[in-house]
């Protein structure tokens, strides 16, 4: 066994490995489930969108990993929401920035709410490492 075959390993997760490596992995699938159940889009549309994003990621050379998979799932969800709910889709970019500001404005340990996004951003002009 060599090359891509190794991607199939390990066969089983080690005992105690969480089902979801990151909370957002679970959230992507949970939102997709809820929107499918409520008929915002169908299971077939979800599979097609996910398949298309996975194919795109593979073609772009994205590593064949769990992170790559969930990144494709997030893009599929965003594109389906934008197609089915254009107003929500159009508001996404601004809302992402609002949450970023809210996190940067909220002292660590305190609950982060969107209200904090409206505060002036004390540390927004720094350079990234």
């Amino acid at each position: 066994m060599s090359g891509p075959e190794a991607a199939l390993l390990p066969r089983e997760p080690a005992a105690g490995t969480p089902v979801f490596a990151e909370p957002w992995h679970a959230e992507v699938l949970a939102v997709a489930f809820a929107l499918t159940r409520d008929g915002i889009f169908s299971a077939g549309e979800w599979a097609d969108a996910l398949g298309a994003e996975i194919a795109r990621a593979t073609a772009a050379g994205t590593p064949d990993t769990e992170t790559g998979y969930y990144g494709a799932a997030l893009k599929a969800l965003e594109s389906l929401v934008s197609a089915k709910l254009p107003t929500t889709g159009a508001a996404l970019a601004e809302r992402i920035e609002a949450w970023r500001c809210a996190y940067l404005n909220t002292p660590h340990g305190q609950p982060v709410t969107l209200a904090a996004a409206a505060l002036p951003m004390a540390h927004h002009d720094h350079h990234h490492d």
Binding site: E27, V28, L35, Y70, G71, L74, L85, T87, T88, R95
Partner: peptide, 22 residues
Amino acid sequence: HLPPEPALRVKALESLLVEKGL
């Protein structure tokens, strides 16, 4: 403290959908 970019994107999506009652 800042969540990773994809986590922010999911949070943005969720919060908009919740606000719209979807």
